[in-house]
């Protein structure tokens, strides 16, 4: 079946991507299938589990419910864009060190949601972390190591900021 296609210009992880994709494809599908950015996962494709979370202008967005055309010209961040020059973000090292990723499938969405939280609230309480992550399901960890990892990353980011100042 020949679907109607649209020209898209997307800014993802600081890079511009020009592409032609079927007009009905979600941002999730375009990221994974058109651009090969498979770090963004999916658990339901119905906006229920948070697994496909990406950041748009720093805010968590469910890529399965987003049409790429809506986010043209905006800053899209996927898990592939969280590290800096190949150096993992403190959230990525904290999640690794503390065992906050078990099967790892919810992890990209968790890390991006946590990144948005820490940018808004650099020193969140446990309750704020729980609230922020409540839309991201994880079936492996029981969430506790994820909370600890976010707290550890917050502390590390706080220290490095202090160092810069």
């Amino acid at each position: 079946m020949e679907a109607e296609k649209t020209v898209l210009r997307l800014k993802i992880n600081g890079e511009i991507f020009d592409l032609v994709a079927p007009v009905h494809k979600s941002l999730l599908e375009v990221l994974r299938e058109e651009l090969g950015l498979t770090g963004t996962k999916h658990g339901c494709e119905l906006g229920e589990c948070g697994t496909c979370t990406v950041l748009v202008n720093g805010r968590p967005v469910l890529s399965c419910l987003t049409l790429p055309i809506e986010v043209q010209g905006q800053e899209i961040t996927t898990i592939e864009g969280v590290a800096h020059n190949g150096r993992p973000h403190p959230l990525q090292t904290a999640f690794t060190e503390l065992g906050a990723a078990q099967c790892g499938y919810c992890t990209p969405g968790m890390i991006l949601t946590a990144k948005a939280l820490l940018e808004q609230t650099p020193h969140p309480s446990r309750e704020q972390i729980q609230e922020a992550l409540s839309g991201n399901l994880c079936r492996c960890t029981g969430y506790l190591k994820i909370f600890e990892a976010v707290e550890l990353a917050a502390a590390q980011l706080g220290r490095s900021e202090g160092g810069n100042a």
């Binding site: 299938e33 498979t38 770090g39 990525q92 090292t93 065992g99 790892g104």
Partner: peptide, 20 residues
Amino acid sequence: PKVDGLAKCMGLTKYADDLS
């Protein structure tokens, strides 16, 4: 840490549906 942990946190792990 898990030996495969960092790859998972970087979005580099290839699960079945990531293959084409």
